[in-house]
Every structure is written in structure tokens, then in C-alpha cells.
Design a protein around this nucleic acid. Sequence first.
DNA 1: CTAACAGCGTTACTCGGTTCACAGCTGCCC
DNA 2: GGGCAGCTGTGAACCGAGTAACGCTGTTAG
Lengths: 209, 209
Amino acid sequence: MAPATKNRGVSPRLVERLSLYRRVLQQAGAAGARATYSHELAAACRVSAVQVRRDLMTLGHSGSTTSGYEIQPLLSVIDAYLGDTGSVPVALVGIGHLGRAVLAFLCWRHPRFVPVAFDRDPRLTERVLDGVWCFPIDRMADAIREQHIRVGVVCVPAPEAQRVSEQLVTAGVTGILNFAPVTLFLPNHVFVETIDISVALEKVAFFTR
Amino acid sequence: MAPATKNRGVSPRLVERLSLYRRVLQQAGAAGARATYSHELAAACRVSAVQVRRDLMTLGHSGSTTSGYEIQPLLSVIDAYLGDTGSVPVALVGIGHLGRAVLAFLCWRHPRFVPVAFDRDPRLTERVLDGVWCFPIDRMADAIREQHIRVGVVCVPAPEAQRVSEQLVTAGVTGILNFAPVTLFLPNHVFVETIDISVALEKVAFFTR
DNA sequence: CTAACAGCGTTACTCGGTTCACAGCTGCCC
DNA sequence: GGGCAGCTGTGAACCGAGTAACGCTGTTAG
Ligand SMILES: NC(=O)c1ccc[n+]([C@@H]2O[C@H](COP(=O)([O-])OP(=O)(O)OC[C@H]3O[C@@H](n4cnc5c(N)ncnc54)[C@H](O)[C@@H]3O)[C@@H](O)[C@H]2O)c1
Ligand SMILES: NC(=O)c1ccc[n+]([C@@H]2O[C@H](COP(=O)([O-])OP(=O)(O)OC[C@H]3O[C@@H](n4cnc5c(N)ncnc54)[C@H](O)[C@@H]3O)[C@@H](O)[C@H]2O)c1
């Protein structure tokens, strides 16, 4: 009934947009740009220009009338807000088709998140996959505690998802990205984000006509 | 700037919830249940009971005071609303890590969507992957036209996503599920749903503390 | 010099979605 | 039988995210 998580008073949409802004700004910066206007950033994120300005306002950041927002300072502000405390260890459970894809993605494309892999299939564990050591599932709690892992990614089959995420939580994880098509029932202090590919496909199929 | 798609006057959130309801009801039905109450359905979907009742009201469906909603009739109503016209062919472009996972998922777990696979890597094409024939990318437009495919799934690297989705659209696709971390610029009549795993992870990391 | 212009910051408002509150109905128990 | 408990249906209130509108500042062209 309740939306569960308190969101710490921050709207998830805002966080999503900030994350988008950051990526776009990083790319723009890498391409040599030094500053950008709210409407440029907006267009690149499919958002209105006022929305960009307002979001940056809530961050307490101001641009200049003449040249818009300088990219580097703005990036610093966003980083500070999103809590860029360097690399974030992530417990990735279930190294099947999807888990493997996420693993590869994190290793190659997303150095900020460093995955630690777990599976229960002995054919996958005790070896290196995509440059990451894969632990058997019964080592998971210890590994999470030792490395102070707070974020978990659940890529196990649907019937296992509830149990696995409970294990994650009792080991200390407080945020879960869930790919299994089930609703997880976890303590209220745990933030759960479910990516339900089936539902997304149904939605596309519905609006397609 | 504009929200682009008209949504045909229907809220995407509603469609998501209906899709969830349907899945839960199917499982409940398979487990032998014959009817359910709004609060049960609500709990299973992390939604309030009034929300369920209101959603069903907009579908024009009524339950009984005594035993709630009968599962089978309700399923029929939801199917009719979501436009369950049997199987939906889907053009899946990019059979790398992620594309492969989606392919396997659709074939094994989601018979309603039947994927047709495309890639540009000759090592992947002209052969059967997970029971599906994989076409080379230059056969894509023809195949989409021949089979009247309306839904596309984009699993190619970010720099290719814009071009590939344009190809999909000119071939007749009007709805795209995009996994590439870029914003696509497409005609307004095309419905685009982007699943951005990076952003989702950042969100979880943010609310984790 | 100054007038037109372009972009930012901010306040007030709009609008869609969610929830409240309550009425109506049905079965059950005393 | 009559109250009671529990569920559905729904008008109205509520809430929050997004938007429009406006004033401000600095820049540029005439
Ligand atoms: N593949 C997709 O594109 C896709 C799409 C939508 C949803 N999903 C969901 O994601 C999940 C994973 O999908 P998949 O295609 O990778 O499945 P998969 O069968 O390929 O992989 C599942 C993996 O989880 C491991 N596993 C199972 N139980 C475990 C446990 N208790 N502890 C640790 N590891 C365990 C298995 O050994 C296997 O390696 C499923 O819930 C699926 O419904 C997948
Ligand atoms: N793997 C993940 O978990 C993950 C997570 C988030 C986002 N993504 C995004 O999903 C996309 C795919 O990821 P991936 O890990 O599967 O990458 P990948 O490199 O494993 O696969 C990409 C596939 O696309 C094919 N391809 C490239 N250009 C093509 C073209 N023009 N036409 C047809 N096919 C083409 C390649 O041959 C390859 O098979 C990327 O945009 C990635 O950023 C992936």
C-alpha cells in the first residue's frame, strides 16, 4: 500500500535526470565543449529547458546569462549531489544470460561500478568471468560484509529472486536492482528498483498502433 | 521539449500496472485461485487497493462485493484492453551480450513475443541462435516489411543506436524498446521506451545510504 | 547610447494521477 | 431480524511534478 521507500525527500525522477545530464555533459566535455545552454542540455535529454534550469536550481547551481553553464563546474556539482564517492562495489547475483551481459557491461563500459559476481552453479563459480572472480553463492554473505557492499543486482530466475534478495539484505545490502519479473517484499529501508523487461515490451506493444 | 508521443490518451503508468495485474492474475489462476480481492492484487503489485479498483473501473469492469473479482473474466477484460491480438513479432537488433539474453528470454519465457534477430556481424548471422534465425542487417528492412513487424528492440552499441532505429522506423516499426544509453530522435508518431541500466544503477546507488 | 535580444532565476499556476472518504451492497453472526 | 464487518464504486480533495510567465542581467547591433 505504501510506496515503501522514503526517497529521502528526493524525487527519483530528479535523480534520473541528473544522471542523464551528467552523462551528456561528460560526453560534451570530452568532445571539447566548455559550456552549454539549458536548452541544449534539455534537447539532448528530451526534457524542457525550464526543467533543466529548475533542476540545477534545486542543486543550488547558477549559470551565467551569457554563456550558459560551464561544463566542468556543473559536473562537479552534480557529482557532489549524486554522491560520487568514487567506485561503488556491486553484488551481481545470477550469472546467466542477463547477468553475464550486465557483468560485461559494467566491466567494459562502466568503471564506476565494480561488480562482484555470485552464482550457485558450480560450472560458473570459482573462476574468472569477464575479468571478475565468480564466487559460489554460499560465500556471498561473507564477501558482502567484508567489502561493505551496499548495492545488489538480482539476475536469478523469478522463483529465486525473493530468497536471494533477502540474503542480500541480511548481508547488509540496502539497494537492489531487480531484473526478475516479481515484486520483492523487503524491509522498508531497502530501496528496490525493478526493471521489468516484459512489462516494458508490453507497453511498447500497446502504444504501437 | 515536447513529450513527443500522444500516448493515445492513455497513461503509460496505467498500462504498466495492467500488465502487472495480468501477470499476477495468470499466476494466481494457474495456482488454482478463482477470484481475488483488490487488496490482494494490490499487495502483489505494490500498489494501493483503491488504485486497483480505480484502474479496473476505467476498464469498465466490475467485481462482486462478496468475492472480489473473478480471475478469468478479469483477465479477458485486461487482454481486450491491452489488445492481446495473439503473438507479436519483434525485430531484435544487435545480438551481442544483451541481445542474446533478450532473445533467450523471449524464446523460452515469453511466447507471446516472437523475435526476429538481426546483426551485422557475419559470425552471428545466417544461422540459428536460440531457435531463431539470425538475419544480416541488410535484410532487415525487407523482413520487417514482409512480416509487418511493428515493434523493435535495440541492443546495438550506443553510437549505432540512432542509425539503427531510423532504419527500423523507415521499415515500418512504430514502437521501439531501446537499451542503448542514448536519447533517440525519431518522428513523433514512434513510441520510444528507453531502458537505461546505467541510470537505474545510479539511482539505486543514490538511494542506498 | 540605447534598444532589441537571449538566456537565467523564480514565483505562481496548471494538470494528471493518487488517495480520502463515504455510500451502497452482501453475507454472517448473535 | 438487525447490526456488523468487509468489500466495491466513485465524487471530491489532495498532492506533486512540470510549465508558463515574468523580471533581471549581460550582450550586440544600429
Ligand atoms: N534474459 C533476459 O533478457 C531477461 C529479460 C527479462 C527478465 N529476465 C529475468 O532475469 C532473470 C535472469 O534471466 P536469465 O535469462 O539470465 O536466466 P538464466 O537462467 O540464463 O540465468 C540464471 C542464473 O541464475 C543462477 N541462479 C539460479 N538460482 C540461483 C540462486 N539461488 N543463487 C545464485 N544463483 C542462482 C543460475 O545458475 C543461472 O546462472 C530471470 O528472473 C528472468 O526472468 C531476463
Ligand atoms: N550488456 C548490458 O548489460 C547492457 C547494459 C546497459 C546498456 N547496454 C547497452 O546495450 C547495447 C548492447 O550491449 P551489449 O553488451 O549487448 O553489446 P555487445 O557489443 O555485446 O553487442 C552489440 C551487438 O550489436 C551488433 N551491432 C553493432 N552495430 C550494429 C549495426 N549497425 N547493426 C546491427 N548490429 C550491430 C554487434 O555485432 C554486436 O553483436 C549497448 O548500447 C549497451 O550500451 C547493455
